[in-house]
């Protein structure tokens, strides 16, 4: 897997950034010793990478996240430790940015250093089945808002078009034209088409850079369910 030192995932609210960031960090860890994931989400109160913290640490991935995430403290804070992703050149960093331009604002303070080091990828996560980004034009608008808010241009696209549990082969295939249109309108490559693992074999030859992912960011009762079975 080719990768830059820093990989940043941003996109529309609810496009699936956190889950992709967690998957990507786990993949990186197979090749690199030091992998950090930074949760810059200052918008979302629930369903965050913090939910996967224990699992990530077990896999040797350090999570940098607000100590208030998933607590009752409603403070949009990012820890000072987040600067490690810039300062520590020995580590591979994955940055999970909050949704939309509001979320991307928090990325802005790291952008000058990211640009200066110039060893990064900035990936736009898109999902055609989100009602405010159903087509190329609406998605481009969100994309421009994010770029303006953080001061950095995207370098690639992740097509994560899905309908949650109801996603099947057709769901993904019906999003190919949408992703291609965004790609040709922006000149950005489709770096991944993310699909759940059980669809990978069916889709690997049909979509651009098909990438299998697991669902790590879950509804709380679904997670409990799993814990119960593991006992």
């Amino acid at each position: 897997m080719e990768s830059k030192r820093i990989t940043v995932f941003a996109g529309h609210y609810g496009s699936g950034k956190t889950n992709i960031a967690v998957n990507y960090a786990l993949k990186l860890r197979e090749k690199f010793d030091k992998v950090n994931i930074a949760d810059l989400d200052i918008v979302n109160p629930y369903f965050r990478s913090k939910d996967s913290e224990k699992y990530l640490e077990e896999k040797g991935i350090h999570l940098i996240s607000s100590e208030y995430a998933n607590s009752n403290v409603d403070v949009p804070a990012i820890p000072a430790e987040a600067y490690a992703i810039i300062d520590d050149l020995s580590l591979r960093a994955v940055i999970d940015v909050g949704g939309d331009d509001r979320g991307a604002l928090a990325l802005g303070r790291y952008v000058p250093a990211i640009l200066e080091q110039n060893d990064y990828e900035f990936l736009l996560v898109v999902n055609k089945y989100r009602p405010l980004t159903p087509n190329c034009a609406a998605t481009l608008e969100v994309m421009r808002e994010i770029e303006t808010a953080c001061g950095m241009k995207f370098t690639g696209i992740v097509n994560n078009s899905n309908l949650g549990d109801e996603t099947d082969e057709e769901t993904v295939l019906a999003s190919v034209d949408y992703a291609n249109e965004i790609s040709s309108a922006t000149g950005l490559p489709i770096r991944m088409t993310t699909v759940k693992e059980e669809l990978y074999d069916k889709l690997k030859d049909k979509v651009n850079n098909c990438t299998p992912i697991k669902l790590y960011v879950k509804q709380s009762w679904a997670k409990q369910e799993e814990d119960l079975w593991q006992k």
Binding site: N127, Y129, R130, G164
Partner: peptide, 9 residues
């Protein structure tokens, strides 16, 4: 057609 939405949205 179905869309993927957050409860609040």
């Amino acid at each position: 057609e179905k869309v993927l939405m957050k409860g609040n949205e």
